[in-house]
Structures are given as C-alpha cells and as structure tokens.
C-alpha cells in the first residue's frame, strides 16, 4: 500500500488554479522533494494531504482523489480525519507554534491532546525531554519560554520536535529551510530527513502504523539543499507535477526550470534534452 497517492487532483483557490490534474504516488519510507518556483502552489500539496487545502481562502474547489495510508481524505469524517492527522507530522513554513503556550507545552501538545489517558503525564514529559535533547534544545524546555522568545531556526526545531513526538508515519515539510543561513539550513535538513526518535514508552498500536523510517515529503524552491538526502525529486510547474528523478537526474538535467531551482544559470546546448517525465493525468 502506498503511503500517499494523489489522483488527478485539481485545486482552485479563490479562482486561481494551483494544481491541474496532479497525480503522485509516494511509497512508504520514501523521501520526496517537490520543487517549484515561489508562488507555484507547492505548499498546497502537503495541505491537500492533510485535508487542509485552503483554510485561509474564501473559495476552494478541490477535485480528484487524495489517499493517505489507504484512506481517501474526501471520504473521512472529522473524527477519522483527526485520527489520521495525529499520525502525520507537519512542519509549516513559520513553524506554526502556539504563541500563548511555552515551548514544552507546544512540543507535548499533540501527545497531551491525543494520548493523555493512555501515556500519562510522566511518559509525555519523558518523550518531550528525549526529543528536545536529541535536537539539542534542552535549554528551551524550561517552563515559561514562549515562542516569541525564539529565533526562526529555533522555532522550526521546536516545530520539528512537535511533529515527530507522536512517531508519525508521514512527515510533511513546507519550505523548512526558507530564510535560514546555509549552515542552519543544512543542519535542519539533516534532522528533517534522518532523525527518528527512540522513546522508552510506545504509543498504542493503531491502524496505519509503519515500521520503517517515516515517509517524508518536502516542498522547496531550492533543490540543491536536498540533493544528497531525498530519493526522488519532482517539479511542480504550471500546476502539473513532473518527475525529475533521483540526484543524478537532477544534476544532469538541462531543463531550465530545474537549473533555476538549483540556482544555476541555464546555458542551453545544441542537444540539451529535457530530463523530466510527465506523470500528471
């Protein structure tokens, strides 16, 4: 069973079409990067997977099938959607931290909301300590440190800690490294693609559990940052997804759009082939 499957998805938000017949299949444990220029609508891919295609829009028109862990998002009622979302971690562009809660409460929020009765407060705090220590954020776990006191990098790490604390089978990142210095972005992307916390106490087994490393989907406008980390690279252009391939395919591509996302100038040769393969329906 695929972890994520999108079939012929069309999305219009406030009259503007962002996804135009997009199809995508992501296998369990796969790390996929979806790249596109700013404003192309790549942020809507993780939002559609979460069932939140346009929360800040007046008019949203979504067509097609989005299937996550074998469940069709459009067929789920609110309880089923919540049950699915609690096993999907997401790191949005600005972290999405709850400003009136301190860092510790932010990190433990999904656990206290979903697993308070099954795990208990001690196990929840132990999980929080473990994640913060792994991410070298233990100093932020002191009571009373609120998100407003954090810089952008720290906010993203706290958001990552919150995303992984429920051991998600799917992790979604929306431009996680945007605005970070190169060193900070490298460190964060290392964690994003390889970090898997180990906890002393296990969560209750649920349908949709995946034993391997979580599936990861990252959107970005900077392909080069993830070349050594992702299994597959996909280009979003004009509302359509086109598979570029693996790292070597990206580096060998003469497609000007790919070169632009790599931050390299395009100098078309006489027989420069376009390496992309259309997969949208």
């Amino acid at each position: 069973m695929n972890c994520v499957e999108m079939r012929h998805v069309r999305l219009e938000v406030d009259g503007r079409r962002y996804l135009d017949g997009v199809s995508l299949t992501v296998a369990p444990g796969e790390a996929v990067v979806i790249a596109g220029l700013p404003g192309c609508g790549k942020s809507f891919v993780p939002r559609c997977i979460l069932g939140l295609p346009g929360m800040d829009a007046d008019e949203v028109n979504l067509q097609g099938d989005i299937i996550v862990a074998g469940q069709r998002i459009g067929d789920l009622n609110s309880q089923e959607l919540q049950a699915l979302r609690r096993r999907v971690g997401s790191v949005m562009r600005d972290g999405g931290l709850i400003e009136n809660m301190d860092v510790r409460a932010n990190v433990t929020l999904p656990l206290t909301y979903h697993y308070q009765n099954t795990l208990g407060p001690a196990a929840i705090q132990a999980r929080c300590d473990a994640v913060l220590e792994d991410l070298q954020l233990s100093r932020l776990g002191a009571p009373g440190i609120r998100p407003v006191a954090l810089n952008r990098e720290e906010r993203l790490y706290v958001s990552l800690a919150r995303a992984v604390i429920c051991e998600p089978f799917l992790l979604l990142f929306d431009e996680p490294c945007l605005g970070l210095s190169p060193g900070s972005a490298r460190r964060l992307s290392d964690f994003a693609f390889s970090y898997q916390p180990a906890f002393a106490t296990a969560l209750p087994q649920e349908q949709g559990d995946w034993a391997s490393l979580p599936t990861r989907i990252v959107t970005t406008a900077d392909l080069g940052r993830y070349l050594d980390r992702a299994d597959r690279f996909i280009l979003l252009h004009d509302g359509r997804l086109e598979v570029i391939g693996d790292r070597m395919a990206v580096l060998g591509s003469h497609d000007p759009r790919v070169r632009q996302l790599l931050g390299k100038e395009f100098n078309p040769g006489p027989s420069a082939p376009v390496m992309t393969e259309a997969i949208d329906g």
Partner: peptide
C-alpha cells in the same frame, strides 16, 4: 497559522 497547525495535528 496557529489554527491551521492545530487542525494539522488532529
């Protein structure tokens, strides 16, 4: 985006 983040966490 805090409401969206809450929704995203289920």
């Amino acid at each position: 985006g805090q409401v969206e983040a809450l929704e995203g966490m289920g």
